[in-house]
Design a protein around this nucleic acid. Structure first.
Lengths: 252, 252
DNA sequence: GAAGATCGTTGATCAAAATCAGAAATGAGG
DNA sequence: CCTCATTTCTGATTTTGATCAACGATCTTC
């Protein structure tokens, strides 16, 4: 009896209708009826453990995925075994959109920590989208956001110094974590120096040295994965000459 | 009388139904009825001259644009006046998709040579898309292609040498031109060394030296804007260790 | 066709970050 | 608790490509 009640509460809790992410996720702008229809096609499988794959390069495209909790990295792999990190994905961010065109994923996606994921079969999503104009609009917005985020990153990789890149990365994380209800100035990195370096086009040693340097400048307090931003303004100023407008650093 | 006839022929010629690009552009996969509906919302303004803007950063997002002939570059601008080139857009490629989310363009778009452009008001396109499932699907594919192209470019900018970058750029151009009916091995660059450099994250001097170097290696024959690829295989081999799969270099 | 502007090439030098190497810290597993 | 593996940090050296500088070629405009 008691157990029955608990299960019921759980069921309520994990629906889109009750998800804290609904203001940044797909349901944004939908009325409650439509959220319910969307919710009915969402699959919630068991959480991924650190190191588990969501999908791998070349897998047949079937679904898009939304991070519910945790962090997921996407990356491509070189013949020589080294990898290029494409993105780090926080709760509310959609993964797998790159697979729509060729019907297979061009990235691999791997959990950096225990992560809960919502799976949305794309065929069903497309059917639903065709009947809910607001959902179609939201899908276009999501895809467009992905494109403009990539534009920002390309600008960063195209012309910035190592210092500017790491500053931009930290600020982007700060902003995104903050808009998800976490602290903007204190967080644990779920990725390694190596992975940060790959994402930013830098060697892991350079990333490590920059953390030390930022610490000497009293901009950060760093202890391995733990980062505290002591001086947000200085961090912003490092980017002042940059095109990258901060609102676009994978916000919200 | 005679003039009247000419105008009529012209009118027939510039409709989507008769456009040679319909196999890579938005109408792909639509039946002729739907192509006609799409065509009815397409605006064809006078061609842009070299240097004319299609839109500028911050302009209110109103339409997406398809290059019909010519080349258009998109770029962002820094406070210091320097620019970061984001892309070079050939016939059949869609521009402005980055503006959907925030309702304003985050890039500027400028013609590199005389270019004919089809303008598609996005509001009308969305309405149409809601009633033509195939068009919705094609829009998703287009947006997804944009994302995967960006992924390829980020990989290129993240970990490749100058040589690999220029090789990838030339091969991408070659493939795209070829799939549009032009020669894969002989073409005129419509962009300057400076613009190529900005796009690839290199100094213009580096680009110039690489052209010379490729010429010494008998890979290219270069005369300012004119490029002839003498040894496609060597060019491919320069990328062999690369993640970037060539099919994804902004193909088709 | 001269003057000026822009663009491309080439050389010399410099600097930022990669690479190489090794030590220290942390974590996992027995 | 000890061992082994991984991650991080730091130092020394090298390399790639940026920067600075000058010149030749091409195009434009009057």
């Amino acid at each position: 009896m008691a157990q029955n009640k608990v299960i019921t509460l759980d069921k309520i809790k994990i629906a889109c209708q009750n998800c804290g992410l609904s203001n940044i996720c797909l349901p944004l702008g939908l009325d409650s009826d439509d959220v319910e229809r969307l919710d009915s096609i969402v699959q919630r499988n068991r959480p991924l453990r650190r190191g588990n794959y969501l999908f791998q390069t070349g897998d047949t495209f079937k679904s898009v995925y939304v991070v519910k909790t945790g962090t997921v990295k996407t990356y491509t792999q070189c013949p020589d075994g080294s990898e290029q990190v494409i993105g780090f994905h926080l709760p509310g961010e959609v993964i797998g959109l790159d697979g729509i065109e060729l019907r297979k994923y061009i990235c691999s996606a791997k959990a950096l920590e225990t992560s809960a994921i919502c799976e949305i079969p794309f065929g069903q999503l497309e059917e639903l989208t065709a009947t809910i104009p607001n959902l179609q609009h939201q899908m276009f917005r999501l895809l467009s956001r992905e494109i403009s985020n990539d534009t920002s990153l390309m600008t960063l990789l195209g012309k910035s110094t190592a210092e500017e890149r790491l500053a931009a990365f930290l600020l982007s994380l700060s902003i995104r974590l903050h808009s998800r209800g976490f602290s903007a100035t204190e967080f644990n990195l779920s990725m390694s120096r190596q992975e940060i370096g790959s994402y930013l086009g830098l060697a892991l040693e350079t990333v490590s040295r920059l953390f030390t340097h930022f610490q000497e400048e009293k901009i950060l307090k760093v202890n391995r994965k733990y980062v505290e931003i002591l001086d947000l303004e200085k961090l912003y100023n490092l980017l002042s000459q940059q095109t990258v407008c901060l609102e676009k650093l994978r916000a919200p």
